[in-house]
């Protein structure tokens, strides 16, 4: 399994997500200013920049240590609700990944454990206009594609497409969780910022992990 998902591949994923969040920082904040407290882009950028800085200060030895360090950094540094949510996501992933490089199936299980962590932390359900509306369909699409025997690159592409579709589907929804829920019906007609950053997370996986066949 020379090409499996090792610490270097997962670190590249984290770095690509950080780069993408920085690139889309203003867009995320603009979305959040419409229905939230206008800090999602700045908060995610602060958190992911701190995660990358922590990687450089103390390079983690294995996949579990890497994602645990990212998760701990996010729960501390993000500031807003996306801190405990994304932080728990990475901490739960770390709990599934061991010290050894992961194969495709283990990565998919880790991603689903991350999803379960987001559900437990945020107590949101599908359709509540949250990051879950991108993450849940992504996990389902990844599992389905791997079950059909598709290679990791194609399976991740399917997951990212499902996340993007889920993100777009948040536009007409009325928010039932988070700061946006205070707006009630006025939250409809706006794309959810959390679902938007989650789609970036899946796009980052396609960009850097597609060649890492497990």
């Amino acid at each position: 399994m020379a090409d499996s998902l090792d610490v270097a591949a997962l670190e590249a994923w984290v770095r690509e997500f950080a780069r993408s969040v920085a690139e889309h920082k203003d867009e995320l904040t603009a979305l959040d200013s419409a229905i939230g407290d206008a800090d999602h882009g700045a908060n995610m950028d602060r958190g992911m920049s701190a995660a990358v800085a922590a990687l450089e200060a103390a390079p983690p030895a294995d996949p579990a240590a890497l994602l645990k360090q990212v998760g701990m950094t996010l729960v501390s540094k993000v500031g807003g609700a996306s801190g405990p949510l994304y932080g728990t996501f990475f901490l739960r992933m770390a709990g599934v990944l061991g010290p050894d490089p992961a194969d495709d199936e283990t990565f998919a299980r880790a991603l689903r454990a991350g999803l379960d962590g987001v559900v437990a932390r945020g107590k949101a359900a599908p359709g509540d206009k949250t990051m879950l509306d991108a993450l849940a369909p992504a996990c389902d699409a990844l599992d389905a594609a791997l079950a059909e025997g598709q290679p990791l690159g194609a399976a991740l592409a399917a997951a990212a497409a499902a996340a993007t579709e889920g993100r777009d589907a948040t536009v007409p929804l009325v928010a039932r969780k988070g700061r946006a829920s205070y707006l009630g019906e006025r939250s409809a007609g706006h794309q959810d910022p959390g679902a938007t950053s989650t789609a970036l997370l899946l796009d980052a996986a396609v960009t850097v992990l597609s060649g890492s066949a497990g």
Binding site: V75, V78, G79, G83, P84, G87
Partner: peptide, 13 residues
Amino acid sequence: GTDDGGLGTDAVA
């Protein structure tokens, strides 16, 4: 608050 004096919460703190 955040460690840079802004609005936010920190689970480690």
